[in-house]
Measured scan of single mutants.
Amino acid sequence: TEVDLHLGDITIKLKDVSEEIVKRAKELFKNGWSAEFVKKWIEEAVK
């Protein structure tokens, strides 16, 4: 499945990412993480 994760003005296309990771990524962004950091976190999380 593909998900578009909207973080501010940046959209990250996610492939084969669990709902849990998407939820967590949104929380991290809301908590002040930059979109770049969230993207890196996701990449690490799906390895």
Rank of each mutant, 00 (worst) to 15 (best):
T1C: 09
T1R: 13
T1Q: 13
T1F: 10
E2A: 09
E2F: 13
E2Q: 09
E2G: 09
E2Y: 12
E2W: 12
V3S: 09
V3P: 05
V3D: 10
V3G: 08
D4T: 14
D4N: 12
D4E: 14
D4K: 06
L5H: 03
L5E: 03
L5I: 10
L5P: 02
H6P: 08
H6N: 09
H6Q: 12
H6G: 04
H6L: 13
H6D: 11
H6Y: 05
L7R: 02
L7E: 02
L7P: 02
L7W: 07
L7C: 06
L7T: 02
G8N: 06
G8K: 04
G8H: 05
G8C: 06
G8D: 06
D9K: 10
D9P: 10
I10L: 12
I10P: 02
I10D: 06
I10R: 05
I10E: 11
I10T: 12
T11M: 07
T11V: 15
T11H: 10
T11Y: 04
T11W: 02
I12T: 03
I12G: 03
I12W: 00
I12K: 03
I12Q: 03
I12Y: 01
K13L: 11
K13A: 09
K13C: 10
K13S: 11
K13Y: 05
L14E: 01
L14M: 07
L14C: 06
L14I: 11
L14W: 04
L14Y: 05
L14G: 03
K15D: 06
K15G: 09
K15H: 13
K15E: 08
D16I: 04
D16S: 07
D16K: 05
D16G: 15
V17T: 05
V17R: 02
V17A: 06
V17S: 03
V17N: 01
S18Y: 08
S18I: 09
S18F: 08
E19M: 12
E19L: 12
E20C: 11
E20D: 14
E20N: 10
E20F: 06
E20Y: 06
E20Q: 09
I21N: 01
V22P: 01
V22G: 02
V22Q: 07
V22D: 01
V22W: 06
V22L: 12
K23Y: 07
K23W: 05
K23E: 14
R24F: 12
R24V: 11
R24K: 15
R24Q: 15
R24A: 14
R24D: 05
R24P: 00
R24C: 10
A25H: 00
A25E: 00
A25S: 02
A25I: 04
A25W: 01
A25Q: 00
K26T: 10
K26D: 05
K26N: 10
K26S: 08
E27C: 06
E27Q: 09
E27G: 03
E27V: 06
E27K: 05
E27M: 05
L28N: 02
L28I: 04
L28E: 01
L28R: 01
L28G: 04
L28F: 07
F29A: 03
F29W: 11
F29T: 02
K30E: 15
K30P: 01
K30H: 10
K30Q: 14
K30I: 10
K30N: 15
K30A: 15
K30S: 09
K30F: 07
N31V: 04
G32I: 01
G32R: 01
G32C: 05
G32T: 01
G32L: 01
W33V: 10
W33D: 04
W33I: 08
W33A: 14
S34N: 11
S34G: 10
S34Y: 04
A35Y: 08
A35E: 08
A35K: 05
E36D: 14
E36R: 02
E36F: 02
E36P: 03
E36S: 07
F37T: 14
F37V: 13
V38E: 00
V38R: 00
V38W: 01
V38A: 01
V38L: 04
V38P: 00
K39I: 15
K39W: 09
K39M: 14
K39D: 06
K39H: 09
K40A: 15
K40P: 00
K40G: 13
W41R: 00
W41T: 00
W41P: 00
I42F: 04
I42R: 00
I42C: 02
I42T: 01
I42K: 00
I42V: 10
E43T: 06
E43S: 05
E43G: 04
E43N: 05
E43F: 06
E44P: 00
E44N: 11
E44G: 07
A45S: 08
A45P: 00
A45F: 11
A45I: 14
A45E: 12
A45Q: 14
A45V: 12
V46T: 11
V46A: 08
V46I: 15
V46Q: 12
V46R: 07
V46K: 08
K47L: 12
K47F: 04
K47E: 09
K47D: 08
K47I: 10
K47Q: 12
